[in-house]
Simulated scan of single mutants.
Amino acid sequence: MERRHFLRASVLGASTVAFSGSLWQGAALAAPAQNATGPYGALLAADSNGIQLPAGFTSQVIARSGRTVPGTSYTWHNAPDGGACFADGTGWIYVSNSEINPGGGASALRFNSSGTVTSAYRILSGTRTNCAGGKTPWNTWLSCEEVSLGLVYETYPFGGTAAVQRPAMGRFKHEAAAADPVRKVIYLTEDESNGRFYRFIPTTWGNLSSGTLQVLVAGSGTSGSFSWANVPDPDGSPTATRSQVSGSKSFNGGEGCHYANDTVWFTTKGDNRVWQLNLNNNTYELAYDDSLVSPGTAPLTGVDNVTGSASGDLYVAEDGGNMEICLITPDDKISPFLRITGQSSSEITGPAFNPAGNRLYFSSQRGTSGSSSGGITYCVTGPFR
């Protein structure tokens, strides 16, 4: 039984099936993802937007940096980065960070049931280098500053409420966040070459104004068991949060983070890895390592933002590489899902599915120009499984 099949089965069948510790151990030691033909087949020639997709999928440009979003009077922000979707009646909202300094912040696009933009607006202003972030179960967007002593800002995609600083979640070079409603915690990555992996335990679930910041403690290997330890001074001054706890595990450039079914995945760009924490038994392992892929060359380099689909597939965006979003299936196979051509000086950011799971939003942060003013936000529609 492959490890993510096992994880899904353990959640869906927990009320009727008991699993032994030995079976858990066998599932946890599955090998990192290997090359295979993707579930949607080979990529076709680039379409009119310069995107190579499998048969049955189509792309469209939703917004361009510095230009008015079609159908609105709102000018789309520069350097679009991390994003997420929120259900909104019969439609949905896609939020996107702006990774510029100064300025930063985040914007939102509201769609009707047919996927047409009906409005666009600002939800966060005056911040710095807002890179990734994460969605909460109470429908807010955590926008993270990727700067020294950066903050997490809780923003409100539906509008009408001002964004709020959440300093209790720590001051460090924040990257991404992922909410775990089972354990009632928020996981956080740190974009430093010796960054750490954190979790924030709110005093009250749904209120991020106070709580406890913890850091992952583990050995130096690529698999094993882990525990959590409190970070004494979450404000990171005078001692950086990553240097406060002896035995905390170092990760080389934390990037994207995604939670589903008692598992959290996160990426590290410095070594092109996707890590997997098995939260039911407190073990960790590699879901992907570009140095361990066979046969042939590794399809995924420059690992960055990550999201998941209802089927359990992981979609990992590249910062560089071949400008691909790669797909890792629950049975540990990896393949390119799409490739953007003619934009080698950019990176892919903000992958997120709409609530129905049939549209994937993402951006090319610097587009064809290679500058932050050239960002392009796309939507891919098709028969996602």
Rank of each mutant, 00 (worst) to 15 (best):
S250F: 10
G71D: 09
P157R: 02
A79R: 03
E99H: 01
A9K: 12
S114D: 14
D319A: 07
E175F: 07
A108D: 01
Y74E: 03
T301S: 15
G308C: 14
S48T: 13
D313P: 11
A179T: 04
S22F: 05
N358C: 02
Y156V: 01
N282P: 08
G370W: 01
I93L: 00
D271M: 00
S107V: 04
L12W: 03
A31M: 14
R273Q: 15
Y259C: 02
P299M: 00
G247I: 00
L292A: 13
R166E: 00
E318I: 06
A79W: 01
S15A: 15
S243P: 08
Y361S: 07
Y315W: 14
A108E: 00
S220L: 12
N305F: 04
T307L: 15
A36G: 10
K184M: 10
G13T: 09
S373R: 04
T58A: 14
D88A: 13
A317E: 03
S20E: 12
L277C: 07
G103Q: 00
C257I: 07
S59V: 07
W228Q: 10
G312L: 04
I325P: 01
G82F: 04
I100P: 01
I123W: 05
S363E: 01
Y288D: 08
M1G: 14
T329W: 04
R366Y: 09
S243K: 12
F266V: 06
V185N: 03
P102E: 05
G256Y: 08
S96A: 13
V264D: 00
I376W: 04
S15C: 11
N230H: 00
T189D: 02
Y378C: 05
T329C: 09
S237H: 13
S10N: 13
V380F: 05
C257W: 05
F200T: 02
Q214I: 08
E145G: 01
N207G: 03
R8P: 00
G302W: 08
C257D: 08
R359F: 01
E285H: 12
A317T: 02
E255S: 08
G256S: 11
A31L: 15
G253W: 02
T161G: 12
T203H: 03
S250P: 11
M169C: 07
T341H: 02
S225T: 15
G374V: 03
F86K: 01
I51Q: 08
R8E: 12
S243M: 13
P157I: 00
T283C: 09
L338W: 05
